[in-house]
Design a protein around this nucleic acid. Structure first.
Lengths: 323, 323
DNA sequence: AAACAGGGTGGAAACGTTTCCACCTTTCCG
DNA sequence: CGGAAAGGTGGAAACGTTTCCACCCTGTTT
């Protein structure tokens, strides 16, 4: 039924192996190449990727496993990765774990089954680096490092970025500062630790809460935090929490920035749309994707490369929420 | 090097064919099934999807081709589709055309090469329904119908939703109403036509502009519209334009809703975060995904089914921007 | 003039599965 | 007690490619 390389071969009057070479990289005469191309057009032949991958043992596909596709950071990242992959002649297999370690494990198995050439991964905190150990293919971590194992990674300078936020808030005259951090990612932990350290560097006592990245959990944690500590300012470790905090302030009648200042991570489109605008750390998302893909390709080409870690700097975007 | 089904067979003391049956659906004795499972665990065997697909001629994969992954509508949609697919034992191959007909054509070819079992597609307006004709696999259109060919589709009741917006604005006492619609999607066209019709039903003269879905193009079109027509209200056909309109109002010192009322499509998270909240049509995105997947599975199971079209209703969420 | 290099080509094996077919049990029924 | 049905198993073919190998040319070198 379906037309294969043999049908093309017959139409072009050559052997199947010659068609294969004409379509790929192989020495063929100009005449044969033209005849094959005509035959392909005439028959409407489309290559069968499964057969191609099976025989050649090369999938020309990289996996991208992100933690939360609703998060604009990851959608932007996936676009950047895909562009870079496409330029390198590779496809991207995108999966979304939803911060769920079970789904994450499932998708990692899936990637193995698909025999991807490499993997870009934003791991859940629950991921045992041992789980990656059995993984044969090159892996590049993105956004989130992994505690134990030495792995290629491209991450934000969370320490520096958090310190910028703290300094900015302290400079604005606030001292009772609270922080709400994501509990499921290494990034949340890093930012929490940096927050604590920088507050202490200023001789201030940090107020800290952690929550899983859901709207409800965030709001509950915020309510506790506000009620308990009566902070003058608040640092939020992701865009979801920033939104939740703004909503909470609105609902409890707190004025931003007079009653409470808000600052967070991720410059989502709406942070400049609300009134007042939100002070945030802007991450170089495109660079994350580009660097990750580049590292991955380098490691695929040469698996014995020493492990590298690229640290990108965030940029403080000061807006009205911390005036 | 890599372990295959033969290695498992040897370890379990059975034939490869028996391992295949034990792993899939086949009559095997309880004893053999247990031995095979042990052997799989012992050897760390992972199936090779390419080989499986090649031999079985079934990919158990559906393609999902969306137009703009940054649009929360499509990210939500992809989550819903993925959940539904997973429940049916299928994988999802997600691609983002970025409203670019060239990329769209490329990804359609890619889907054909991957021999996906079916395809869920939000087509660009430039897509010739003829381009899908050569497509062997079942296709379900989502969000955007296709002019010419009869195809399964799940779409919003754009006519009704647009009428709701117009009625709502007219009821609030506004009569000079302008509309900005996406130029690259069938949806934009439908909404524009419905806008025109409903305005005329009220005996009002519609002011209409179209723009490609980019922030810059939207802002340029808005500036023209505002300057030329001095509208009291504005209807925006997607979330991007709503944001652009709000920004434009802010920058030109127009007060919302006093100087101009704003209403649009897509209830993105921030529409309730800004002040005033934006009046929007909320789309049942989860239902879009669920219905589309269901239709696709039905058609895969029985390709001779008559073409169906599911029309979902939007919900008017009235907020301060039209008070 | 003989040997050689190398581009161009066809034939056949191989990639790792699933599935067809044949065969051997066992069980059940007449 | 004989035979048919059904369950379980192994052997081998097949899926559509790529790639190895052998071969044939033509042109160049010794």
């Amino acid at each position: 039924m379906a037309i294969g390389i043999k049908d093309v071969a017959r139409a072009a009057g050559v052997a199947p192996s010659t068609v294969s070479r004409a379509l790929g990289t192989g020495p063929v005469s100009a005449d044969v190449r033209r005849r094959v191309q005509e035959a392909v057009a005439a028959t409407g032949y489309r290559p069968n990727m499964s057969a191609r991958r099976l025989r050649s043992q090369r999938s020309m596909t990289v996996g991208l496993v992100v933690a939360d596709i609703r998060n604009p950071f990851f959608t932007q990242l996936s676009r950047a990765v895909e562009d870079a992959a496409y330029r390198a002649g590779m496809r991207v297999f995108l999966c979304n774990t939803d911060e769920d370690p079970t789904r994450e494990a499932m998708y990692l198995d899936l990637m193995a089954d698909e025999r991807v050439s490499g993997l870009i991964l934003a791991p859940t905190r629950a991921l045992k680096s041992q789980a990656l150990a059995g993984f044969q293919v090159p892996v590049v971590l993105v956004d989130r490092p992994l505690p134990g194992g030495r792995r290629d990674a491209v991450v934000l300078d969370n320490r520096g970025a958090t310190a910028m936020l703290v300094d900015h808030l302290v400079a604005s005259g606030r001292s009772r500062i609270a922080g709400l951090f994501g509990a499921t990612s290494a990034t949340g932990i890093e930012r929490r630790d940096a927050f604590q350290a920088q507050m202490q560097a200023h001789g201030l006592a940090p107020v800290i809460a952690m929550a899983p990245p859901s709207l409800d959990a965030g709001r509950a944690a915020l309510a506790d935090l506000m009620a308990g500590a009566d902070p003058q300012a608040m640092i939020l470790s992701n865009g979801l929490f920033v939104g939740a905090a703004l909503r909470h302030a609105r609902e409890t009648g707190l004025s931003v920035p007079r009653d409470i200042a808000l600052a967070g991570f991720d410059d989502e489109p709406w942070t400049s749309l609300v009134e007042p605008g939100i002070t945030v750390i802007r991450q170089p998302v495109e660079a994350f994707g580009r660097e990750a893909m580049q590292m991955l390709l380098a490691r695929i080409a040469n698996p014995d490369l020493p492990t590298r870690s690229v640290v990108l700097s965030g940029e403080l975007v000061a807006r009205g929420s911390t005036a």
